[in-house]
Simulated assay, not measured.
Amino acid sequence: MQTSPAHAAHHNDREIETLEEFDATVSARGTLAGYRVQAVDLTDRTRELLATDTAGAVFLGCPMRENAAAKIRTDGALVFPPVPDLPFDPYRGHVYTPDELFASLDRGYEETPDALAYAWFQRTKADGDIHASMLRAVHDDSVSDALDELLCGARVVGVMGGHAMARGTDEYQGAARLGRALTRAGFTVATGGGPGAMEAANLGAYAAPYDDAMLEDACALLGKAPSFTPSITEWARSAFEVRARWPRGNTSVGIPTWFYGHEPPNAFASHLAKYFANATREDGLLARSNAGVVFLPGAAGTVQEIFDNATPNYYGSRGEPTPMVLVNRAHWTDHLPTWPLLKALARERSMESRIALVDRVEEVPEALERLSA
Rank of each mutant, 00 (worst) to 15 (best):
S4P: 00
H7W: 04
A9T: 08
H10Y: 06
H11S: 14
R14V: 02
E17L: 10
E21Q: 15
F22H: 05
F22Y: 09
V26Q: 09
S27I: 00
S27F: 10
L32W: 06
Q38E: 05
Q38N: 13
D41S: 10
R47L: 09
E48W: 09
A51I: 02
T54C: 15
T54V: 10
A57C: 07
G61M: 05
C62S: 11
M64H: 06
M64I: 03
R65H: 13
A68F: 01
K71I: 00
P82C: 12
V83S: 09
D85L: 04
F88N: 09
V95Y: 07
P98D: 07
D99C: 00
A103L: 07
G108Q: 09
G108P: 03
Y109S: 03
A115K: 06
L116E: 15
K125G: 02
R136S: 02
A137H: 12
H139L: 03
H139I: 02
S144R: 11
S144V: 02
A146N: 07
L147S: 08
E149Y: 01
L151M: 07
A154T: 10
A154P: 05
R155G: 08
G158C: 07
G158V: 00
G158A: 15
V159M: 03
V159F: 01
H163D: 03
M165C: 12
R167T: 01
G168L: 05
T169F: 02
D170V: 06
E171G: 13
Y172H: 15
Q173L: 15
R177E: 13
L178A: 13
R180H: 06
T183E: 03
T188R: 00
T188N: 04
G192K: 04
G193H: 06
P195S: 14
A197L: 04
Y210M: 02
L215H: 10
D217K: 15
D217A: 14
C219W: 00
A220R: 15
G223Q: 06
P230H: 06
S231A: 11
R237H: 11
F240I: 10
P247F: 02
S252H: 05
T257E: 04
T257D: 06
A267I: 07
F268W: 06
D283I: 00
L286N: 07
A287Y: 10
G292Q: 05
G292A: 08
L296T: 01
T302I: 04
V303G: 10
D308E: 14
A310Y: 06
N313W: 10
Y314I: 02
G316Y: 04
R318K: 11
E320W: 03
H331A: 08
W332A: 05
H335N: 09
W339L: 12
L341F: 08
L342T: 11
K343M: 09
A346P: 07
V358L: 09
D359R: 04
R360T: 12
R360V: 01
V361I: 08
V361M: 08
V361G: 12
E363G: 05
V364R: 12
